[in-house]
Design a protein around this nucleic acid. Sequence first.
DNA 1: CGGTCCCTTGATAAACATCAAATGCAGTGG
DNA 2: CCACTGCATTTGATGTTTATCAAGGGACCG
Lengths: 243, 243
Amino acid sequence: MDAASHAPDKLSLFDGLSPAEQEQFRRTGKKRQYKKGDTIYLHGDKAKYFFIVTHGAIRLHRETPEGKEVTLHIAIVGDTMGDHELFESKSNYQASATASEPSQLYEFPLGWMRDQLREHPTLALNMLAYLSRNGRTSDRDKEHLFTLKTPQRVGCFLMQLCALHQFNPARFTLPYSKSTIASKLGMEPESFSRALSKLKEIGVSITGNNVSISDMHRLDSFVCGSCSLSQDCETCEKLHSHT
Amino acid sequence: MDAASHAPDKLSLFDGLSPAEQEQFRRTGKKRQYKKGDTIYLHGDKAKYFFIVTHGAIRLHRETPEGKEVTLHIAIVGDTMGDHELFESKSNYQASATASEPSQLYEFPLGWMRDQLREHPTLALNMLAYLSRNGRTSDRDKEHLFTLKTPQRVGCFLMQLCALHQFNPARFTLPYSKSTIASKLGMEPESFSRALSKLKEIGVSITGNNVSISDMHRLDSFVCGSCSLSQDCETCEKLHSHT
DNA sequence: CGGTCCCTTGATAAACATCAAATGCAGTGG
DNA sequence: CCACTGCATTTGATGTTTATCAAGGGACCG
């Protein structure tokens, strides 16, 4: 997957737009580079820009008054940032955004983006499909929080990684730090670490950042045996279609 | 708030549509009545209809293979059902829908609704705003699951009830059963019950289904003191604007 | 009056967080 | 190249929260 395939005209949000329209987005959007750890914006900042991730991964997170940090989402290629702020009059960013690895974003003025959505029905429909899909994964995550134990949540996350990035389950590298993953899964780093050691018992070995899933079938039944989606889980389908 | 104010032409989804367009929705939409406990559809059913709630409350829930039931959402007046299925080719309902009180829905064929969204940009934009707002409350709920203890989650839920339904905090009635609320908050009925007794210590008394919040300020600081949104929480703003 | 359902209360257990310390690893400067 | 420092992760010991199990109370309904 090369850089070109992530140019805005290839992102799903721009699917079906005419070349002229796509050119308009290419002209208005500013490409921004961020280093690992860079802050794109802070929770509470006045929302000025809408972003599309073209490379890397951006962590969206908040901090409670008591100092606990919560990772709401990790935005990867094709994901947007600022969608929650697009349609709110009083629009402050609802979370902070930090690059969790070197990343590239397309940046559009928020008001301009609103106008484009009004003027280009196709864009609006793409955005609808995108948000609707977000809702589904959000529901899935909620179910997992309610019903799965930490080793199962970690196991599902590893499967999602393989499905989303087309990693080879037999040998791949974690794209973010373990504490970032722990936070996104709603657990402490210690619990994450212990969950990993439990996963070793079913053939998932992790040394450093290198993961190897020896028996995907075993992991699948360990995780998905407790999930209501097992039948039509998108992650599972992608994994099986690649083998 | 009378029945007429919930006719589809007054729902936010139809805001800004021309009278002629609204008439079209009124003609195609079928009004459906459901009794408490009625099933509207089941998880896995082929998705045929899109719904808008005009009265009552519908519980969206799933069951894991191990028999645990998870409540993903309680849809109330103005909420939609089927939005997650609208843009998916293989569209089975992602959850079951059950009336948790006598309810009324507007029912539209799913494919027809898709077409309407394509043909009426205003409708699509309303839907975008609706989904975007859903995303925000979903983020809030996720943060709460990660950081709040059960009594705080229950406290926030009571505040949300007052804000959403314009209840008088000094005296109102729970609109759903306690176990339904517990499930939506991701806890067992026992934990919910114990959370309530802890809330009594800060002036929230519940006898049967009757709730009385004697000191909203005290509840507010108990709950929102641990929440990153305290500054611009929609629920809090609504509550304060009513006093 | 007896039954069912929902909720509450108490006792116990499991899962996870927290606290504390050790280990490992990467980058820095000698 | 090697010690040194800082940070991330692991591991162990302990505490808290919540789930689970079991029993009892109260309202509604036949």
